[in-house]
């Protein structure tokens, strides 16, 4: 064996990876060649130095930065959008949707009030508001509205110039008035039309005004995943793995407070991955026909091009 061969095999020799015969060849060469023996010693010293090299400690800010990144990961659903980094100014979903959601909420609030007022009267008979309830004046038909004189009417008459004939008065009954006090106070008398008497109007039960208009619009589709009791354990890992494999993320996990089992998981995906994700769910468990997401669920995701699935896990 010459010096070149011995040098070529030096690492394997020191790792103990040579056959016995080859190792003996190298050993005998190192005994005879001082230069190669010195090279072998220095190579071993370098490797020992590498093994004993103490790691430089991680800077203290690393943990804080990881925490921040994870927090952004959990809240930054907008990073699923077409390449939009979640750390761009205004790039977060909340900040980008704040103004449109508030505007939509305001419009829906006005509309709901309008519908509320326009609807049929409440079950109880209308009561005159305190502001317009005055003591009964002397009987004067042209200034009375079914026994009650409105402040507006008083002001109208009082503001007429002297000598002006008073306009022809009309007499209204309580039944002619609209149900809501606000409308009664602000509606011109000429526009109040005689209607059905209060007794004849059907009583209608109406729900409370929909306060959900004031909240951000929900989004996403529901998926029901049925699993066997044996397949229950680790199902969240498999759902999350399916989402991650398809480039999505897990937005939220809800667990049963009693047992700690996952009852639902919310995942975010890009739209092209939606079908593949549902196929994965069919492999993990069984998605019954009634558990498949409906086509009419809108919007599908927090931002265009994404879809959010709330996978509800049920043990069958």
């Amino acid at each position: 064996m010459d010096c070149r061969d011995a040098t070529e095999r030096m690492s394997e020799y020191q790792d103990g990876l040579l056959s016995a015969a080859a190792a003996e060849d190298v050993s005998s060469h190192l005994r005879e060649c001082g230069e190669c023996a010195a090279a072998a010693r220095s190579l071993e010293a370098v490797r020992e130095l590498l093994r004993s090299l103490p790691p430089p400690p991680a800077p203290p800010e690393l943990l804080a930065r990881v925490r921040e990144a994870v927090a952004r990961e959990e809240t930054g659903a907008a990073s699923l959008a077409a390449g939009l980094p979640s750390n761009l100014p205004g790039g977060s979903l909340r900040s980008r949707l704040r103004i449109p959601l508030e505007a939509a909420a305001a419009v829906l609030l006005v509309a709901s009030i309008y519908w509320y007022q326009k609807g049929s009267p409440p079950a109880s008979p209308p009561q005159a508001p305190p502001a317009v309830a005055t003591p009964a004046p002397p009987p004067k038909a042209d200034r009375q509205i079914a026994g009650t004189e409105t402040v507006a009417r008083k002001r109208e008459v009082a503001s007429l110039p002297a000598g002006t004939p008073e306009p022809k008065a009309r007499i209204y009954s309580q039944a002619d008035l609209p149900a809501a006090p606000a409308l009664r106070a602000s509606t011109d008398s000429e526009q109040i039309a005689s209607g059905v008497s209060a007794e004849a109007r059907p009583v209608e039960e109406r729900p409370e005004p929909p306060s959900r208009f004031l909240r951000p619009l929900p989004y996403g589709k529901e998926v029901l995943l049925e699993v066997t009791p044996e397949g229950r354990e680790g199902v969240e890992e498999r759902i999350a793995a399916a989402a991650w494999r398809l480039g999505g993320s897990v937005e939220r996990i809800e667990r049963d407070p009693a047992g700690g089992d996952v009852v639902s998981m919310r995942v975010l995906l890009k739209e092209p991955a939606a079908t593949a994700f549902l196929s994965e769910m069919d492999r993990i468990g069984k998605v019954p026909p009634q558990g498949k997401p409906a086509d009419v669920d809108l919007p599908a995701g927090p931002i265009p091009g994404t879809v959010a699935y709330t996978v509800r896990v049920r043990v069958r």
């Binding site: 930065r65 990881v66 990144a69 990961e73 969240e236 793995a241 991650w244 494999r245």
Partner: peptide, 15 residues
Amino acid sequence: MAQDVFLSAYRNLGS
């Protein structure tokens, strides 16, 4: 890079 490594781990620890 270390931050990216741990963030990637956070995303993929499920698998």
